[in-house]
Design a protein around this nucleic acid. Structure first.
Length: 423
RNA sequence: CGGGGCAUAGCGCAGUCUGGUAGCGCACCUGGUUUGGGACCAGGUGGUCGCAGGUUCAAAUCCUGCUGCCCCGACCA
């Protein structure tokens, strides 16, 4: 992609609306643009990152046996009345009417629709387990949306639902999804923790959260320094200031608790029969008896991961993308594109790397060098290659790492080698 | 929903107290000089001062009502 053809409206000033660093940087790097409180546009650069996260999520879930579907965002209120969440869910549930005054809601989650799908077919216990997911825009009318896409009203979520014949197979489905999540978050490559969690108003007995660690995280996590114990402090029923937990004995008796801040990006639940009872999502077991299906549900805040990544990885110059979700892998910075021989050399390097399967940006804009360097840093592209009149005839190129700030003189094969190792 | 703040050019802001021809920086456009770390000089475009009423000879400025946005809290993936 040629930079001159990309719409990336960067800004050198912090927006007045933003407080959080990820929010500021997402606006300054031209990734997002707000339309209303908690409602955002994803511009080309931001969308590239969002799609990267989406692809990692999709690929892993498919590998772990889940099947992608797409459910409607607009849902009839009747289903929500049936599950009794029409009144319970609270004002976060956006309600409205169509032209003939029928009640609808804008989907904040899809247990009701999922049950409706399940119960409308004659499904045998032999068909189970079934696990279906979607990656879709959700709407929750937050009391106070804030921090950009971190806590938006409209946001991109992956939600998955598993169906099993009994409790023990539901647990197997749950563990399978937990493993899928571990694989997803390992692939993304951010520092994360899995903690015991409060199931909140989704319901169910067992639930765990995936948190990306960051000092700005809204959740406090209590993590043992010498065992597997890790929990959201919400579940500890501790009546004092949670920061006092730091250094106290771990509930499992092993080691001391350390308090860390996290951003919740995934939450998995064993729902049991909570929804299937209310919604009559049944099937027959091997003895012919009607059973309410055992469900699990599994969420990932896809758009939130983008912001959380920036919270965890940035410096005073801008974003630092992990290779896995970077909008581009390498930026070929052409310092004087008006000189034909320089531009030719840049295009040649660009093409070679592209042909080798890397995602390359060519900054061919006829602007000052400093602007290109500074924007490259704000945008956080992992590697850059600087080619100018001074060094274009060389067979060595200036190769820079955004993360380490390292500057190397490398030939094209050495560069290919390094990029190959990142995959 | 309670408390606090803000709304003036694309962005960031001053001007409001004390009413009297709407300004600054950045961005953008023209020309020139520059050209490896957000260049410089000269010129230029761009505003129903959030909206609706009111007071006044005169309102960005004073009064009333409304709307939107931000922060703190309660709440929540």
């Amino acid at each position: 992609m040629y930079f001159s053809k990309l719409f990336v409206p960067t800004s050198r000033q912090d927006p007045s609306e933003a407080e959080l660093i990820s929010h500021k940087l997402m606006i300054r790097s031209g990734m997002i643009k707000k339309t209303a409180a908690g409602i955002y546009n994803w511009l080309p650069f931001g969308l590239k990152v969002l799609k990267k996260v989406e692809t990692i999520v999709r690929t892993n879930l498919n590998n772990f046996g889940a099947q992608e579907i797409l459910m409607p965002m607009v849902q009839p209120a009747e289903l929500w009345k049936e599950s009794e969440r029409y009144d319970q869910y609270g004002k976060e549930l956006l309600k409205f009417q169509d032209r003939s005054e029928r009640d609808f809601v804008l989907g904040p989650t899809h247990e009701e629709i999922m049950c409706e799908i399940f119960r409308s077919y004659a499904i045998s216990y032999k068909d189970l387990p079934i696990n279906m997911y979607q990656i879709q825009t959700k709407f929750r009318d937050e009391i106070r949306p804030r921090f950009g896409v971190m806590r938006a009203r409209e946001f991109l979520m992956k939600d998955a639902y598993s169906f099993d014949i009994d409790s023990s197979s539901m647990e197997k489905s749950y563990v399978n999804m937990k493993n899928a999540y571990i694989s997803i978050f390992n692939d993304i490559g951010l520092d994360y923790r899995i903690v015991k969690a409060d199931a909140g108003n989704i319901g169910g007995d067992v639930s765990e959260e995936f948190h990306i660690l960051a000092d700005s995280g809204e959740d406090l996590l209590a993590i043992s320094d010498s065992s597997e114990f890790a929990a959201n402090v919400e579940v500890l029923n501790y009546d004092k200031d949670p920061s006092e937990l730091d250094g106290s004995k771990s509930p499992d008796g092993k080691g001391k608790l350390r308090i860390k801040r996290g951003i919740e990006v995934g939450h998995i639940f064993q729902l049991g029969q909570k929804y299937s009872e209310k919604m009559s999502a049944n099937l027959k077991d091997s003895s012919g008896k009607d059973i309410n299906v055992y469900m699990g549900c599994y969420g990932i805040g896809v758009s939130r991961i983008v912001a959380a990544s920036i919270e965890q990885n940035h410096d005073d110059k801008g974003i630092i993308w992990p290779y896995s979700i970077a909008p581009f892998h390498v930026n070929v910075i052409c310092l004087d594109p008006s000189k034909e021989e320089v531009l030719k050399e840049c295009e040649s390097v660009y093409q070679i790397l592209k042909d080798a399967g890397h995602e390359v940006l060519l900054d061919d804009r006829d602007i000052r060098a400093g602007n290109k360097f500074t924007e490259n840093e704000i945008l956080g592209i992992p590697f850059s290659i600087v080619i100018g009149p001074r060094n274009y005839a060389n067979n060595k190129y200036e190769f820079n790492s955004r993360k380490t700030n390292e500057k190397l003189e490398l030939n094209i094969d050495e560069i290919k080698q390094i990029l190959e190792e990142q995959k």
